[in-house]
Design a protein around this nucleic acid. Structure first.
Lengths: 225, 225
DNA sequence: CGAACAATGTACGAAATGGTACGTTCAGTC
DNA sequence: GACTGAACGTACCATTTCGTACATTGTTCG
């Protein structure tokens, strides 16, 4: 019984469980995620991934044909994990302003808690999104994100608390930008401006500022023209 | 007479011009900038840099002792170039709101026009800012940036058009974040959301949004409590 | 002029690195 | 209990890649 939990069920005639392939695969992917996100596609070493794995180098090539394919799977897995977490947010029962506020804070915190994901996206951008372009999976995963935000926004416009004329895609861009930069440029920014950006109190400040900034941008103008 | 122009002047007794060292050095640095910004520290190849240079690989090691040192010089040169351009901005004679507006637009456009610089900073962040930390030059270069913004901001507060209590460093963070993300994540964002972010009309839209967002964030609230 | 040193070309070495050949063990089937 | 194919280990190969040894040319100064 080395298998994780599910033993070969009757319906599982085609896909039988042997040694423990699933777990080996998952282990490789986990290690690869750490290595690629830490050192990039060219910086990561297959031999080093192999060492840090329960499995051997042979297994990496067995399950993932080559380095780039392994990287692609890593990227896909990272996106999948993110979208799963995002799916837990349910904003429909909240008032528009509350919903937007919560969405922004969630995004900010989520990015902060998943630097591996952020770094992988950075690395992918260094590669001009070449691998992401190959993945239909990722493309399809992200379709819904805009819709969620778009729904909140249009509800807010109807309710009269959000101003009209904004594009949900651009709104998402703004929220992403602020949340992403917080992780992606933490090192250079902290060092250049001698500011412990990662310190909890500064993170809290930034989260508040970012939220405030988005809300101020979306709220209706209360002033007279 | 292969030298570019200035022959050995009398005052130049210590530093004589030979073959054309300065130009060779500059050429290597220019090629290195392209290669490193394109492929990262580990992805760039010394041999490839050598090929694309007028000089030979031998010269790279002659002027820059090793790969990492070359990378560091590349990074320093990039920051220097940026700060030189920024110095041309003079905001003192402008009204605070105009000045801030101009600063934001300048930052946004500047980043957009210098993707090599942005990519180098991304890459440096992947390396946890390890090389930037070694460079006193870069640290000193960036000291003044906050002061410029701080001056505009405090003038605005005095004039009554900016609200109080904001930290110039955090304000700079916000402006940087939006301008940086526009370049750094262009590839993934464009592909995922099927949106030609680099298209001129979209760039214009984003520039306007970013400017608008910052101004809305800084302006005094005109509404009654 | 020729000594001295800076600048440069050529060829090579040693280690790292992606990937593979080949053999062995495990688990389910008849 | 032999057979079969998936799962896995070990050793190895070919190439790439950073870096260097050595020889050579150019330039300045006494």
């Amino acid at each position: 019984m080395t298998a994780t939990s599910a033993t070969a069920s009757p319906r599982d005639t085609r896909r039988r469980r042997k040694n423990d392939p699933e777990s080996v695969r998952a282990d490789i992917l986990a290690v690869a995620t750490r290595e690629f996100s830490e050192k990039g596609l060219s910086g990561a070493r297959i031999d080093e991934i192999a060492e840090k794995t329960r499995a051997s180098k042979r297994m990496i090539y067995y399950y993932f044909s080559d380095k780039e394919t392994l990287y692609l799977h890593t990227l896909e897995a990272a996106y999948q994990k993110v979208r799963l977490q995002e799916a837990e947010l349910d904003l429909d029962h909240l008032a528009p302003l509350e919903a937007l506020c919560r969405l922004v804070r969630f995004t900010f915190c989520h990015h902060a808690k998943n630097p591996d994901f952020i770094r992988l996206v950075m690395i992918e951008n260094i590669h001009h999104g070449r691998f992401l372009a190959q993945s239909e999976l990722i493309q399809s995963l992200n379709a819904g994100v805009i819709d969620v935000l778009g729904d909140v926004y249009s509800r807010g416009v109807t309710a009269g608390c959000f101003r009209e004329g904004l594009d949900p895609r651009e709104l998402h861009w703004l929220i992403s930008a602020l949340s992403f930069f917080n992780v992606s440029n933490q090192h250079t920014f902290s060092r250049i401006f001698d500011w412990q950006q990662a310190a909890p109190e500064n993170q809290q400040k930034l989260e508040d500022h970012v939220t405030d900034m988005v809300l101020r941008y979306v709220r209706v103008d209360r002033e007279a023209p």
